[in-house]
Amino acid sequence: MSKLLEIQELTRRYGPRRGVENISFALKEGEIVGLLGPNGCGKTTLIKLVMGLLQPDSGSVLIQGRVPREAHHLISYLPENTYLGEWMAMEEAFRIFGDFYADFDRAKAERMLGEFQLDSRQPLKTMSKGMQEKAHLALVMSRHVPLYILDEPMSGIDPAARQSILDGILQNYNPGSSLLLSTHLISDVEMLFDRVVFLDDGYVRLDRYVEDLRAEEGRSVDEYFRRLYAPAKGGVHAS
């Protein structure tokens, strides 16, 4: 498998505060990687750097050999918060995606919206957070791209809606593509991952294949995560 996303020695600070520090890792084609860590550990900063929405202090990001601002056609991105106008209905969002992305599959988007029992004419401002998240997911997963990046797709959502979103990802994910999913709700999604990258205060604390981690540690990813981020109890050391 060749490298789809390559991050090298990436650093970004917010004044004296650390965003991400000297991060390096690569994502191969077809891989599903979980970007995990507690709130404020740098997950969203890293994703914004990959998307070109933030500029690094040093280091580089390449997506199939291109810098982020030249690679937007290769990535389908779901940000943490809505990026559509509140007045907008999904019909308008479909139109925008259809206009700008040649790989957007409108029929698939409408089918997903139907499965989520959402109306394409309903404005976003009248939808609940869970409904908005599902609507965005229908939009993002209906593109045929090599890389999907989903930033906290299930935060602030009730467990029933979470399961529905997870199903939406599983059923509509193209097996040939790669997926980078950031979350701190690990137990819900850990069966998805091939690999996990744990971030801690801007650093990569752990980067391991899930199978290896389970076999060597004898724990689920969620259990390992909880122990790793429980300083008072003397967390396990990353290898």
Partner: peptide, 14 residues
């Protein structure tokens, strides 16, 4: 604003 996350990730140049 939050809509910038869409505008700046559309496949268009600055």
């Amino acid at each position: 604003s939050h809509q910038g996350y869409l505008t700046h990730t559309l496949p268009v140049t600055a």
